[in-house]
Structure formats: structure tokens, C-alpha cells
Design a protein around this nucleic acid. Structure first.
Lengths: 247, 247
DNA sequence: CCGTATTTGTCCGTATGTATG
DNA sequence: ACATACATACGGACAAATACG
């Protein structure tokens, strides 16, 4: 509950219990800016600038930085500053592997426990995704896709799993940003989604888990093809100048 | 350093004193105190007290609180304070389920990639655990057990997995604290560990994963039996007085 | 229910470290 | 290498909210 769900399509937000402190507001705002790409990967976050920009003092900014570092969205270098994290291909692989495992677990659980209402919600979402696919509206499809998988994990009924899953997805979005120009894989993905829902409805936990696992691994594989294909620029962008050795 | 931080409780960290910021030092110290039980579950962390105690100002304390909340060790209530988290049985179940999944993944990977050195390290650790078991030294056994499983995950070669695994283990220790009076399950656990290493050595990824998964689920089951047996006191201890409704 | 004490939330000044010419 | 400019680390003051009598 501490961090907002990442995707732009937000799950029916439980009423905010209490007005957030400035730190929380700043944290969420920075999350949004990072995930939306408003702040680029590797970019330095200047305390004073952000404080001025958001109209608060530097205290809450600094506090939110610490939280954001734990979520994996930024990296802090002592006495040097805070930087939006960049995910290497190796890290991306690791994260995709975990995501695949989470998806399998969620699918396995869900096939055994899904309710008619949940299934209807998923089918409804799938329909909207199908529409977007036919119209080739990638900008519409992508958030729906995120929401679809988020909903699957949410319905699996393990809040801790959902929390970790969302953190992974957020981190993945850190570098999936520039690799979103596929387009051709859409129909196949939609078909897979339909088969997944069918498996869930049939109650076949084993098959559902396997399919979701494969589905996630396919994304992982896609990352590699896209990577090698074009946008390799960002990979070595890391301005890691070796720090001056400590005297 | 501008102001001399009272010499009081500054441990012998003089060496590291340069590399980590005060916030990090405070964060790790609080982690240690929470995980060791030095600070009890549900207890309130008073900023001023801790600041005085550690000889620093409130700034670093507050920053570390934000980080600790993201790790799941504390819970923050706006304008009320920071509290050491308590894990309900339901949350414990959820976490154990994830831990079992992580263990399976780690085992599957490890069986396919383990090196002779790694295997030797694990066997050496297992030997020490066996010794501790025979001597019925639970206080010796328990840390070794934690290290054994941590090493398994570490050797699996997915840093992100290790990070998440450790976070789960930390959270589990939040409530496994009072349920540590088993004692009889030790021999069986050690036998399981040996069989796990054998499976790893044989390279049977499937079997290794399955065994580690089962091994973790056994811990989960043990939690329930212990829970129902005795220490149910802590469960409903939550001093959740409904907050005054927001005006 | 009101006033006081305590604690948290926020802001800002200063020292120290880092980048740069 | 040195001096200068700038950013961060930390501390402390004040404001706001809560807890207590």
C-alpha cells in the first residue's frame, strides 16, 4: 500500500486513508515522473531543483529518495547524488525470470480460486484488448496489458506477491521504455491471453501456471531480439566514471 | 564533520565511517536491533530518543525510517509515528508461499550451474549443522540454517532473487522470533538438507526445486502447529485504536 | 471538552565533500 | 595542483498534529 500501483490504469484505488505527508506525495510524484519517462534513465535528481519545482523544502525530497532507492527506481551515491536507475540486460534477464515465476504462481493459485466476477472482469478487459489489437492502437493496448497481468496477480490473493510483482514491473518499465515499438507481436499475445483465461476457467492450475510462465519468458526473449536489433544506445550509457580513490 | 556527534554509542565502525552515510549506518543499526529482537514487535520508534541514543540528529533517523518502511520492517502512520511491524498469520502464510517459490527457483537454477567450490562450501556448512544437531545446540544451528539457505539462493546467481529472498526472510524473522522452541524437528531438517545437496550434485534440477519447495512448505506448516500450540498472544496485540476520523 | 506537553512534519543554515576551470 | 562554485549531509529551529491530563 505504500507505493502507488505503477500502471497508468489504476486498480480501483482503495480510499486513501489519510492525507499523505509531503514525503509520500513527493515520492509518488517522483515515481510517476520516472515511470512515465519524464525523467530519463541515468539522469541526476537535484535536491534543490526538485524542491523548488515541487514547492517544498529539501527535507521531504531527501526522505523520498531513500524510499525510492529501496524500491529500486533510483540509485544513491554518497556525496554525489541520486540517479534514476538504469537496468542492464543482465538485470533485465534476472527480473524477467522472477516475473515468470511470479506469474506461474499467480496462475496456479488463481485457477483454483477464481470467482465468476473476477473471471468476468478479466474477460471484459481481454475484450478491450482485442479491440485495441484490431485497431492497432498500441497506446491503448499497452496499459490494458499491464492492467490485465496486474489483475491476474491481484486476484491470486497474496498481497505480498502483488507488492513484489508490482515492484518488478516498475523496474522493468525502467528499460522497457525505449523498446516499445514491436507492434507485430500483439495478435499473438492476445491469443495467449485468451488461452490463459480459458485455462483458468477450466480450473487447470498446472496448465495455467505453465502458460503464464511461458508467456512471461516470451517477453524476456522479445527483449533480447529488440535489444540486439536497434536501441543498444542506452546500454553502455552509464557515465560511471570511477570514483576518486579514497585517500 | 561540523558538530561532534556525541561519543556515546558510536560503535567500532570507525573504518566504515567514511564509506556509508549516517542514514545508512542508522538504517543498518535499526535493522539489526529489530531483527535481533532488541526492539519488540509493535513497539514505537521515537525519533528523538533514537537520535539521542545514536548520537545523531533526527534527519538521518527520519530518512532511514522511510527506507525501512519499504523493506517492510516498520510501518509509518502519519503524524503518529513509526512502529516495528507485526506479521499476522495470514501474512506469514503469504510470505512462506513466496519463499517456497523462491527456494524452488533457486534450487532449479543451482542444480544446473553449481561449481565444485560452491558445493564444497555448502557441504562444509552442512557438516557444521550436523554437528550442532548432534549436540542439540539450537542457538548454533539456527544461524547456520539461515546461512545455508541464503547461500543456496546466493549461488543461484540471480542478485534480484537474492535481494527479494532476504527481504522475505527478514520479514519472517519478525514473527518467527517467539516460535523458536521447536527442537525436535532438527534432525529431520538436517536430513532434508543432505538430500537437497545430493540432488544438486546429481544435477537434477527438477528434483532439487521440488525438494526445496517442499522443505519451505514444511516450515510454513510448522508455523501453524506452533502457533496454535502456544504463543497466540502476540497475534491480536495490535494496539490499533481506530484513528480519529479525518475532519 | 479545553489547555498543555510531547512528538512528528517541514524548512533552512552551515559544514563538508565533489566537480570544474 | 589550487581555487572556486556548487551539491549533498547533517543539524537545529519552528510549525502542526497528536496525546494526555
Amino acid at each position: 500500500m505504500s507505493q502507488e500501483p505503477s500502471p497508468s490504469v489504476r486498480p480501483a484505488n482503495i480510499a486513501i486513508l489519510q492525507s499523505h505527508s509531503l514525503t509520500m506525495l513527493v515520492q509518488h510524484e517522483l515515481e510517476r515522473m520516472i515511470l512515465s519517462g519524464e525523467i530519463a534513465g541515468g539522469e541526476k535528481l537535484n535536491e534543490t531543483n526538485i524542491a523548488t519545482q515541487l514547492g517544498v523544502s529539501r527535507g521531504p525530497i531527501r526522505e523520498s529518495f531513500r524510499a525510492l532507492e529501496e524500491t529500486g527506481l533510483v540509485r544513491i551515491e554518497k556525496n554525489r547524488g541520486v540517479f534514476v536507475r538504469e537496468i542492464s540486460v543482465e538485470e533485465g534477464d534476472d527480473i524477467y525470470e522472477l516475473r515468470a515465476t511470479f506469474d506461474r504462481l499467480a496462475g496456479t493459485k488463481l485457477a483454483a480460486t477464481i470467482t465468476p466476477v473476477q473471471l468476468a472482469n478479466l474477460r471484459s478487459l481481454l475484450q478491450r484488448m482485442t479491440d485495441a489489437t484490431e485497431k492497432k492502437e498500441l497506446d491503448t493496448y499497452h496499459p490494458l496489458n499491464l492492467r490485465f497481468h496486474d489483475m491476474l496477480v491481484e486476484y491470486a490473493g497474496n498481497p505480498k506477491l502483488l507488492q513484489m510483482y508490482r515492484r518488478l514491473v516498475d523496474e522493468l518499465s525502467l528499460f522497457r521504455r525505449q523498446s516499445l515499438a514491436q507492434g507485430d507481436r500483439l495478435p499473438r499475445s492476445t491469443l495467449e491471453h485468451k488461452r490463459i483465461l480459458d485455462a483458468i476457467e477450466s480450473g487447470d492450475a498446472e496448465a495455467t501456471g505453465r502458460m503464464l510462465h511461458e508467456h512471461a519468458l516470451a517477453s524476456q526473449a522479445r527483449m533480447h531480439t529488440i535489444r540486439t536489433a536497434g536501441a543498444t544506445a542506452l546500454i553502455e550509457k552509464k557515465p560511471v566514471r570511477p570514483r576518486k580513490a579514497r585517500r
